[in-house]
Design a protein around this nucleic acid. Structure first.
Lengths: 121, 121
DNA sequence: TTGACATATTCCCATATAGGAATGTTATCG
DNA sequence: CGATAACATTCCTATATGGGAATATGTCAA
């Protein structure tokens, strides 16, 4: 399986770069599909599919206007993501913790340097 | 393709529920792989693979301690996600905007109710 | 060195899904 | 009604990847 159980939650929806693009584009005002197609340089069916995903997880609203369907970002839908990320906030904002961890590493000099990811702190 | 270009960025990493579980688990203190295996009820190879992904995108650090490898969340890695989500903050916190949108919808009563997603506002 | 433990990697399979092409659907207008 | 515009859906293909089994790698202890 390519991505477990909850295939369509907010986390999955924003994992796709094109969808993040669309969300930013539709943040300030509503736009018809054609305008989105032009803006993000993707064919219309693909855009419609992304919009469907975004709509299903509540990240965009849509209203019909004549022959057009106007989409707009529902910023509210981002809140779960924001709140989840906020859980980590006090850890990265804590200099003390970082110092503590540094000290622990100092006390364990027999570690191997990671070749994959270099520590940024 | 199952997920475009940047297959392994932070957004993709946290799109996986198991990995979010691991990140929370490793937030307060470092733990060896075996302990993670027990905690999240997943086989060891799968856990190792998730840890690899998390390490590659900088969401966990690792240090060796004897035969054990101790993993811990690098909260700092969540910041890009948090900052991205914050972009939307002023939109959901703005009551005024919501009222404005409500007014626009009132002026356009010929819309169809979405059967997929019900507006929560 | 041998054995045991801890972790990582490889191989395989099933599923999810992005994109493109073709087609279907819905609404407006003459 | 018929044509057209605007979207949505379906079908297809290629790729990504999660989980499990088997295997490999690495480290310590005796």
């Amino acid at each position: 399986m390519a991505r477990a159980a909850t295939t369509s939650d907010v986390f999955n929806a924003v994992a796709e770069p094109r969808r993040r693009q669309i969300l930013i584009l539709l943040l300030d005002r509503e736009r018809p599909v054609t305008e989105i197609v032009q803006a993000i340089r993707l064919d219309q069916p693909s855009v419609s599919k992304h919009l469907r995903v975004l709509h299903e997880v509540g990240l965009v609203r849509m209203r019909r206007n004549g022959r057009h369907k106007l989409y707009q970002t529902r910023a509210d839908g981002i809140r779960p993501l924001h709140e989840w990320a906020s859980t980590f906030e006090r850890y990265w904002s804590s200099q003390l913790l970082r110092v503590k961890q540094r000290a622990e590493q100092m006390a364990q000099p027999d570690q191997k340097k990671s070749t994959i990811h270099k520590e940024k702190e």
